[in-house]
Simulated assay, not measured.
Amino acid sequence: MVRLPLTPAEVARGQRLGAALRRARGERSMLDTALEARVSPETLRKIESGRVATPSFPTIAAIADVLGLSLDALWAEVNQPERDAAAAGARTGAAERWAS
């Protein structure tokens, strides 16, 4: 199976996901978190560092559960910049239409 290269947006989303999980983990050790979520510490490290930009849903669900994170809240946080950029683009486009 051939994997297509990730888009810059997918890479950025993966980095935001990793940062959100890292913040949620706080002082808790990576090893303890990974073992409780039943993922390898290496997998958790790669996700948190953004090296795995598109982890599987069951993996993220398990990690989020261990960290007490709502998947809805996590999804909203990870996708927030895209919505902000889209809204800014829509506002800019509207302003440009009114200016002409």
Rank of each mutant, 00 (worst) to 15 (best):
Thr54Ala: 15
Gly68Trp: 05
Asn79Ser: 12
Gly14Asn: 01
Glu77Met: 05
Val11Tyr: 05
Ala37Cys: 05
Val66His: 00
Lys46Ser: 14
Ser70Asn: 05
Ala34His: 08
Ala86Tyr: 07
Glu36Lys: 10
Ala64Leu: 02
Glu36Ile: 06
Ala24Ser: 07
Met30Gly: 14
Arg22Val: 06
Val52Leu: 14
Pro58Trp: 01
Leu21Gly: 08
Met30Cys: 11
Ser70His: 03
Ala88Tyr: 07
Met30Asn: 14
Ala62Gln: 04
Ala99Asp: 10
Ala76Pro: 04
Ile63His: 04
Leu35Pro: 07
Ala12Phe: 01
Ala87Gln: 13
Pro41Ser: 12
Ala9Trp: 06
Glu27Val: 03
Val39Asn: 00
Gly50Cys: 01
Ala73Ile: 05
Ala86Asn: 06
Ala73Leu: 11
Leu67Gln: 04
Glu77Ala: 13
Val78Leu: 07
Val39Met: 04
Ser49His: 08
Pro58Asn: 01
Ser56Pro: 00
Glu10Cys: 00
Ser56Met: 03
Ser29Asn: 06
Ile47Asp: 09
Gln15Lys: 03
Thr92Asn: 09
Gly50Asn: 04
Arg28Tyr: 01
Met30Leu: 15
Ala53Ser: 00
Ala87Phe: 10
Pro58Phe: 01
Glu42Asn: 14
Gln80Phe: 03
Pro8Asp: 06
Arg97Ala: 15
Arg83Glu: 12
Val66Ser: 01
Val11Arg: 14
Val52Met: 13
Glu27His: 05
Arg3Gln: 13
Ala19Pro: 02
Gly50Pro: 01
Glu36Ser: 11
Ala19Trp: 07
Pro81Gly: 00
Arg83Ser: 09
Gly93Lys: 11
Arg13Met: 04
Leu71Pro: 00
Ser70Glu: 03
Asp32Arg: 04
Asp84Lys: 03
Arg45Tyr: 14
